[in-house]
Write a protein that binds this DNA or RNA. Sequence first.
DNA 1: GATTTTTCTCTGGTATACAAAAAACCAGAT
DNA 2: ATCTGGTTTTTTGTATACCAGAGAAAAATC
Lengths: 225, 225
Amino acid sequence: MDASINLEPLRQTFTLKERIYQVLREAILEMDVYSKNTDLRLDERKIAQQLGISRTPVREALVRLENENLIEIKSRIGVFIKKRSIDEVAELVVVWAAIESMAARLACGQVSQEEVEELELIGVKDTSENQDVYSEANIMFHRKILELSKCNMLKKIGEDIFAQIEPARRHAMRDPTRTEQSISDHAEIVNAIQSNQPEKAANLVREHTLRLEKYIRKTWKNLDT
Amino acid sequence: MDASINLEPLRQTFTLKERIYQVLREAILEMDVYSKNTDLRLDERKIAQQLGISRTPVREALVRLENENLIEIKSRIGVFIKKRSIDEVAELVVVWAAIESMAARLACGQVSQEEVEELELIGVKDTSENQDVYSEANIMFHRKILELSKCNMLKKIGEDIFAQIEPARRHAMRDPTRTEQSISDHAEIVNAIQSNQPEKAANLVREHTLRLEKYIRKTWKNLDT
DNA sequence: GATTTTTCTCTGGTATACAAAAAACCAGAT
DNA sequence: ATCTGGTTTTTTGTATACCAGAGAAAAATC
């Protein structure tokens, strides 16, 4: 029966709570949480009003965000964007290192030449002249490793954790001298993956990421009390 | 004023959505999801009615459970307990291996003699006569490793992932011959941690857990379509 | 004026009512 | 008997209304 037209499923996921969740999540992640004069309070009612809807779907979105540790709902007091402590962030980086390291290990021996080249292109090119460009490329490099693991769960959980780290990472990362070190690290990692050395690749990635942990601990600017 | 009755604080973290969340979560995790005649549907109203409350807090609990991947809320169709595919479970075990391996690595060099003994007690004693006892001890052993890492995030995320694996693990684990292998693995792991060999401990834990992955893939009884 | 008590407001928590979409049902035509 | 089409029922999504606790402001007390 190949004659029938075979249309796509057309899954209409048009629920408000879903859209609000995404909007709020993005807004929170892009906000400079650690700046002094940022209002960390979220008001259900105000949000609902601004979006022209009722509180119910907003609340459901907030519950979800709380479950992802991005906000904190204090009963009968208020909803607040969570500002992670240096310890929490550092620990999250450790988890991230664990996951990323496993991803690199898995990537070995199952990547095409083409994929390695993509990875190299992202991670090794010199971006030191521009801090933002470097930062972006850095993220992409680590994302790509997760992807090359071909393990969807690893990728998904890795990205979730990264989302929690990201605001703090932006806060701490201000030192351009780190760039060159990072690029040479990346080159080594690419090399290990390409030459199918899982143990080495895993170790390199782990140490590379744990270096970020040390760095964050060292340069953390304690803006909050 | 010692004359007044001075009651206890009555720790009132008593929000319904929180309690419902916990109740439902436990119920779902203990349920044999993979059995043929298990009703995978959850009815908001029925749950609310059974608990004698309104739908609202039930829904918020459900949103949270969905965010944890334990259930799926299909818009305007219904709420269903999620039955993970073998591939998803296997991938989750890989993530778990990554985290647990890092935990073992961190545990090295920061555990007391006492803690090592606790770990040994849990993981090495012969429990092969009783499958359930063995299974329970096995879980405890891995929990303990997460704990000894002294990294709260590692522990928390590790346990979250384990919760997602657990139903499938129970489903697949039926082979008692695995027990002795497991115990000797555990002994080696304890030994590596005790003698402060991070690299070795990490490798042992990883391979031990990845063996579970292979095992699950092999013995998976495909009860669903 | 300082401290305690009271009140009042603000905010999230819960219940209920209504709307909309999917699924089940049913009757008539073929 | 089966298919088709509309209709009813069921179930979720959203809106609204009300409740209760926490904290601030105001009032009373010393």
